[in-house]
Design a protein around this nucleic acid. Structure first.
Lengths: 218, 218
DNA sequence: ACCTGAACACCGTTCAAGT
DNA sequence: ACCTGAACACCGTTCAAGT
């Protein structure tokens, strides 16, 4: 996009691409055009390159998506574990986890379902969380189940961020769904966004419940 | 696939397709071949028809996915609301909700993120849930937030169903993640699947927490 | 090693032509 | 109204050819 120079075939004197530049540009593109129009061709165009050039740096589109997921995961904040209380650390982790995805709303659908097997940085993130649970007094056999339960809620909440605001709007069928219409009206009187409110309610419940079940920070 | 008859151009004497047949076949196909190989062409092939024929019954692929999501939603069980206690009804709803998606593991990634705006049958499902919350004593302004929080957890848990079992396996990096390796080993001694266990733990916590916050069924 | 250009099989979708 | 056949623009990906 920047340089309007024409590049002939053959290896350039200094390489124009690298994996990191590609991943960042891909995230930017996906977030701006949405999953439908996100293609290798569009990404190449954004980077001022022809599509086959990308394949020198990423194996294929699937691998590209996995890499993008890793970049998103890297902004998840686990710094609380080891310095703050379990409750404060896990709150920080959960909020930054959801925020990481909320920062790329159009990316959520594509990225949330990519398995992140074997990504070193991501495993390091889980290691911090696990250590935090253990240090707070968790039984080893309960850590994975409890962490995954919380993570499921966080990811589900991230998906909810992109749900259209009128998703529950009955429209002209409001007469058949009086309860729904009523609670929607009652809720719209509250301050703050719908999705944020649900997340905070659920997060408080999950953290309280987990702490209670494991006799932590009562 | 069944009839090896060749069909010439022109309207057939009795139509071979209808919306319901298409949606059911699409769900079957998506579930068996996975999201990558799920295409209009493949679906047409499965129905013994050429791809353009599908467009007489569904507007486009996006609309097809929305319709499929509706079919999945229809197997969610709201029969408990009105007959059972709030706690039992909401448990039945949550388990059948997750089961509906778990029945189509390959479909989850594609379907979970489709908005379901304006689907009459789906709105009817939410209406039952809302009525159940109201009947149990919920404040009108709290119903949507609480229901969506629970639903976020359920959807996140449905996504977790398809996560590969070795997702957290550190592999040769086990030395760097001793905590993770330890809790994985401790957990594998437990009976039942990893995903089911997390779901049941989280569900109990969410339902207890919601009941407690709203002074229900204590 | 790292780019372009040409090529491949395949996509979703439109539309005219048939009955 | 509902199917096929032909056509369109566009995919992801491979590979030879250039530097």
């Amino acid at each position: 996009m920047d340089s309007s120079e024409v590049r002939r075939a053959g290896r350039p004197r200094t390489s124009v691409l690298d994996r990191e530049r590609i991943l960042v540009a891909a995230l930017r593109l996906l977030n701006s055009v949405g999953p439908e129009k996100f293609s290798m061709a569009a990404l190449a165009g954004e980077l001022g390159v022809k599509p086959p050039a990308l394949y020198h740096h990423v194996k294929n589109k699937q691998a590209l998506l996995v890499g993008m997921r890793e970049v998103v995961n890297e902004s998840i904040d686990v710094s609380g574990f080891g310095s703050l209380s379990w409750r404060e650390a896990v709150e920080r982790w959960a909020r930054s986890y959801r925020a990481a995805f909320s920062a790329h709303p159009n990316a959520i659908a594509l990225l949330a379902t990519e398995p992140i097997t074997g990504a070193t940085r991501t495993l390091a993130m889980y290691e911090c969380v696990v250590q935090g649970f253990l240090a707070a007094g968790w039984e080893a056999s309960a850590v994975m189940g409890d962490m995954v339960a919380l993570e499921s809620f966080i990811l589900g909440s991230a998906l909810d961020v992109v749900a259209p605001d009128d998703m529950f709007d009955p429209g002209d069928a409001a007469a058949q769904t009086p309860g729904l219409a009523g609670v929607l009206a009652a809720q719209s009187a509250l301050e703050g966004s719908r999705a944020n409110h649900s997340f905070e309610v659920g997060l408080a419940i999950m953290i309280d419940g987990l702490a209670r079940r494991n006799g932590v920070g009562m």
